[in-house]
């Protein structure tokens, strides 16, 4: 595992660039824990100041320091992405591995549920959800809903791997060692789908962060929790661009793009690594 990471760092510039970008973003997020200002308070500094030595990225019309606000926002946004990715990975793994291993009617049942989730339109559902829940619509609830909507495609991917693992002799060997389905799936098959889980994690985080930003910019979430989308929402509310407070918008947009690019690069480089075709290359493939 560490060897793989080391090789990737050494030979794969996409991976290296992705790691560096993500590290930068993570540092900004971690700085929020030493923020000099309480993140939820407004009018703690003079409003509308352009970037300066004192306020690196300027201040907002609501009297908040953009840099420190941003640092809390990106922390929440990343956390959102991670939580959604984790929950949806667990669902995707459970469904995909068991459907693939069990086959037959279990597989058909799980896959029809799965296909339903693939085709439902996610965005309208979330907006609808917001209008139903209104004030109870918290950050955590949104993460849960997004996770429940974001596992289906990857579950299908995992299932296709599990299906092919099932035909291999070692699966039968494990079965005849008296292992039950749970043990076989978690101990024999899970390691094979981990690479896929890693890449889909990156993609899924991109997807859920994008979703969160879009919903917040439009005001369909709890805008009082500072997130990247929330920051842009408030900037729009104060017509920041019109009044020339461009730094209020530019900073969160730039940072979230950095996150997208970093995750994308990581996903791409890992994809290259796990491409099953590389197995034939051992035989002398080009």
């Amino acid at each position: 595992m560490w060897k793989i990471l080391r090789d990737l760092l050494r030979y794969n510039w996409e991976f290296t660039a992705g790691v560096i970008l993500l590290a930068g973003v993570t540092i900004v997020a971690l700085l929020s824990f030493v923020s000099p200002y309480p993140p939820l308070d407004v009018y703690v500094v003079a409003p509308d100041l352009p970037p300066s030595m004192e306020h690196w990225l300027g201040t907002t019309s609501r009297g908040q320091d953009v840099f420190w606000q941003l640092s809390v926002a990106i922390r929440n946004t990343l956390a959102f992405g991670i939580v959604v990715a984790l929950i949806s990975r667990v669902i995707a793994l459970a469904v995909g591995l068991f459907a693939g291993y069990a086959g037959g009617p279990v597989d058909r049942l799980l896959m029809s549920v799965n296909d339903t989730f693939i085709v439902v339109p996610i965005f309208p559902i979330l907006v609808l959800f917001y209008f139903v829940m209104r004030d109870q619509m918290s950050w955590g609830l949104l993460a849960l809903v997004a996770a429940c909507l974001g596992w289906a495609y990857d579950a299908r991917l995992i299932r296709s791997i599990a299906l092919s693992l099932k035909t291999r002799e070692f699966t039968a060997q494990s079965a005849f060692s008296g292992m039950n389905a749970g043990e076989i799936v978690t101990r024999e098959h899970l390691p094979y789908v981990m690479p896929v889980v890693f890449t889909t994690t990156m993609n899924n985080m991109n997807w859920s962060i994008g979703l969160e930003v879009t919903l917040s910019v439009l005001g369909f979430t709890d805008v009082n929790t500072p997130t990247i989308g929330g920051m842009i929402y408030w900037a729009n509310q104060h017509a920041a661009l019109v009044s020339g407070i461009w730094w209020w918008i530019a900073a969160p947009v730039a940072l979230v793009i950095a996150v997208f690019v970093a995750l994308f690069l990581l996903a791409v480089s890992m994809n290259e690594y796990i491409d099953p075709r590389s197995r034939l290359a051992r035989m002398g493939g080009g």
Binding site: E169, A172, Q173, S177, M179, E188, P191, Y192
Partner: peptide, 29 residues
């Protein structure tokens, strides 16, 4: 009834240690 398979290279999971299968068999059966 126990099997012995065609291809020893496939009979064990390449990602796990061989002795584990022996212990699992002993424990479960």
């Amino acid at each position: 009834v126990q099997p012995i398979f065609q291809n020893p290279f496939e009979a064990f999971n390449p990602l796990t240690r061989v002795d584990r299968y022996l212990y699992a068999t002993a424990r479960n059966l």
